[in-house]
């Protein structure tokens, strides 16, 4: 029976064009595969969004209530009790914009970290580019954010903002933030797939980031009196992507913040778009590359 020993099995397999099971496709092929799955990504996200609150009695109403309650809590603590509003004319629009925009990043990252470990049975049964999952989870959060945006605009107009063309800048700003979030959740998806401990740690990291990003107080106001002697720290806070996207949303939406508060605090907003574009590109390209490097290992174990 063993007369064919002249040819090894591996050689035989190679001669017939068989490949090592679960090899990683090259990066360009992988990008095409993900792009080909775009309908899957969108449909997966929509299905997740619509099934999100099915077990609760108020159902989809929570999509609006959750952000509103968040704003209520932050206003009570930071607006009323601690009074962090110094330097800001319209504090409620300022706070609400900050909370909603930062929540988008925060929730994308949390969902991204679970996107592989939470879909193991799907990953094991069907073959598809795994990067579709973190992308889909960011789209879920984007759909949530769009609902929050309706609430936000209602609040803005209620607090005296007038509709203007300048507000349309929020669209490119959100697109850039979405790219940044996708990149970051791709990184976290890979980390979370192999080190589940990160899910215990993530809430603390994200909360620290929230306080460092000027979501509930104006960084320029703090910079003016407390950080005067640490210019490098100010530069660091300016470059922080969390704060970049939040500030960009505020300068786009709140007229008084852009034309009155920031100049009075001696702060410019010229750097914001450049930082926003740079962070979006770096995160998305780097995150995709990093996620792809472990493509064949997701679902193992």
């Amino acid at each position: 029976m063993n007369g064919q020993s002249s040819e090894s099995l591996a050689g035989f397999a190679a001669r017939h064009g068989l490949k090592q099971s679960a090899a990683r496709p090259p990066l360009t092929t992988y990008v095409q595969q993900v792009w080909q799955r775009r309908t899957f990504i969108w449909n997966f996200a929509s299905a997740k969004t619509s099934s999100m609150y099915t077990s609760s009695r108020l159902g989809q109403l929570w999509q609006v209530l959750t952000p509103l309650l968040n704003v209520g809590v932050y206003y009570l603590i930071f607006g009323v009790m601690l009074n962090t509003k110094h330097g800001v004319t319209h504090f409620i629009p300022f706070l609400v914009t900050g909370v909603f925009i930062f929540t988008f990043t925060q929730r994308s990252v949390t969902a991204g970290a679970k996107s592989i470990s939470g879909n193991l049975s799907l990953i094991r049964a069907l073959h598809f580019p795994r990067a579709s999952l973190p992308f889909a989870h960011v789209i879920v959060e984007l759909q949530q954010l769009l609902i929050s945006m309706v609430v936000l605009f209602a609040l803005l107009f209620a607090f005296g903002e007038t509709p203007s063309f300048h507000m349309l800048l929020i669209v490119p700003m959100l697109l850039l933030q979405m790219c940044f979030n996708m990149g970051l959740s791709l990184v976290l998806a890979r980390v979370g797939a192999f080190t589940p401990d990160i899910q215990q740690l993530l809430p603390f990291i994200l909360r620290t980031w929230l306080y460092a990003s000027g979501v509930i107080f104006a960084i320029p106001a703090i910079a003016q009196d407390r950080l005067k002697n640490h210019p490098w720290l100010i530069e660091l806070l300016k470059a922080n992507p969390g704060s970049v996207y939040v500030e960009l949303a505020r300068t786009s939406l709140i007229d008084s913040y852009r034309t009155k508060d920031l100049p009075e605090l001696g702060w410019s907003d010229n750097h914001l778009w450049w930082y926003a574009i740079a962070w979006a590109v770096i995160a998305l390209v780097g995150g995709f590359w990093y996620f792809h490097r472990a493509e064949e290992r997701y679902g193992r174990g």
Binding site: A13, H16, G17, L18, K19, Q20, S21, A22, A125, H127
Partner: peptide, 11 residues
Amino acid sequence: VYTDGQPSLLG
């Protein structure tokens, strides 16, 4: 293990 195409596992 060498295969042609990606195997699908139904568990």
